[in-house]
Amino acid sequence: MTVSLQWYIGLSVVLFGMGALGLLIRRNVLVMYMCIELMLNAANIAFVAFAEKLNDIGGQAAVFFVLVVAAAEVVVGLGIVVAIFRRRPDATVDDLHMMKG
């Protein structure tokens, strides 16, 4: 690991910030899910960089579990999106206030 750890963490922070920014400013549910994927990938970069720095395989195992959780989350989330969009085809997240009291 010849590129120092700070660069990887900096890249991870910037990528996480961009994902959070997209999650906050976009109104399309699918694009918001993509931004969540960006944030998960930023966390993965940090995990692998620290694992490589500390010679610890736990970081790679954590990335493995993050991948699994991301896959399950996308399956359930897209199922919900399909269920909602079938009923109202032009819905953005601002229109989804069925649970508002």
Binding site: V14, L15, M18, G19, L21, G22, I25, R26, V31, M34, C35, L38
Partner: peptide, 8 residues
């Protein structure tokens, strides 16, 4: 970063 900007 280019891909992330594209997503947003």
């Amino acid at each position: 970063l280019a891909g992330a900007v594209g997503v947003i």
